[in-house]
């Protein structure tokens, strides 16, 4: 067990540093902050709302992450397969799940860095008024969990191809489905013809539903279980797919 944990941390260290080895990380962070800022201030009218909270910021996160997390996840496996380094990884005396987990955690930590860089907004809100900081903290927790779920899905999909662009687009599509699954627009469209259980299953997949509850300050077990199991399930499929696809 300690050997497994240590290989998770060795993989984590390498992967996390790899994000910063190219300008990609800086570009990503800048794009994220610029988009988050633009959405919050101009589209949602942060100041015009006149209320000291971060709802204007969190509302946009699912939509931003829908594009940004596939970008973080796309290289995780596609690049290993393209360059052949997967052959090194998979002939090391460690369990494949430790590599899957190490890579995922590195991407997640990178997302954590991006989120941490938005905290000046939190400070600003406190400076302008007296927000409910518990709600904001819950919002950050929800955002981070959602990021983990999207990243796990993107990592999983990146095992299926050697092409990062294909990995990105496919992950964005799947994530889009996850986000929109709970919208009345989508549910209404399937309710007409699909059996009841399918409509319910699609509704249950709704990231948006869970995310909205947690950003209102409601940290509930179903929400934590929803995101947690999405992550665990995606990582398990990821481990399975790596094994299946590695040599092709």
């Amino acid at each position: 067990m300690t050997a497994s944990l240590s290989s998770v941390s060795v993989v984590f260290g390498r992967e996390f540093r790899a994000y910063f080895a190219t300008p990609l990380a800086a570009i990503f962070l800048v794009v994220f902050l610029a988009l988050a800022g633009a959405m919050t201030f101009f589209v949602s009218g942060f100041f015009a709302r006149g209320s000291a909270d971060m709802a204007a910021f969190f509302t946009w996160m699912p939509w931003l992450f829908l594009v940004l997390l596939p970008a973080i996840g796309m290289r995780l496996w596609a690049e290993e397969r393209r360059s052949g380094t997967i052959e090194l990884l998979m002939t090391m005396p460690v369990a494949p799940w430790t590599i899957v987990l190490g890579k995922f955690l590195a991407g997640w930590a990178f997302t954590g860095v991006a989120l941490a860089l938005t905290t000046p907004l939190w400070i600003t809100v406190n400076w302008l008024g007296s927000p409910d900081n518990g709600v904001i903290a819950a919002g950050y927790l929800g955002t981070f969990l959602m990021a983990g779920a999207f990243l796990a899905v993107a990592a999983c999909i990146s095992t299926l191809t050697k092409n990062q662009v294909i990995a990105f687009i496919s992950a964005a599509i799947v994530t889009f489905i996850l986000v929109t699954a709970g919208l009345e627009l989508v549910l209404g469209a399937i309710r007409g013809w699909a059996p009841y259980w399918l409509t319910e299953a699609v509704a249950a997949l709704s990231v948006l539903e869970h995310f909205q509850r947690i950003t209102q300050g409601l940290i509930e077990a179903p929400t934590l279980i929803f995101f947690g199991s999405l992550i665990v399930l995606a990582l398990m499929i990821n481990t399975f797919l790596v094994d299946l696809k590695k040599a092709q």
């Binding site: 390498r14 080895a21 190219t22 360059s83 380094t85 052959e87 090194l88």
Partner: peptide, 18 residues
């Protein structure tokens, strides 16, 4: 088994940025 093995795959793949 893998602990006792050293392997150079064809084309000597490595992480280029490292």
């Amino acid at each position: 088994a893998k602990a006792k093995l050293g392997y150079l795959p064809e084309g000597a793949p490595a992480y280029g940025e490292m």
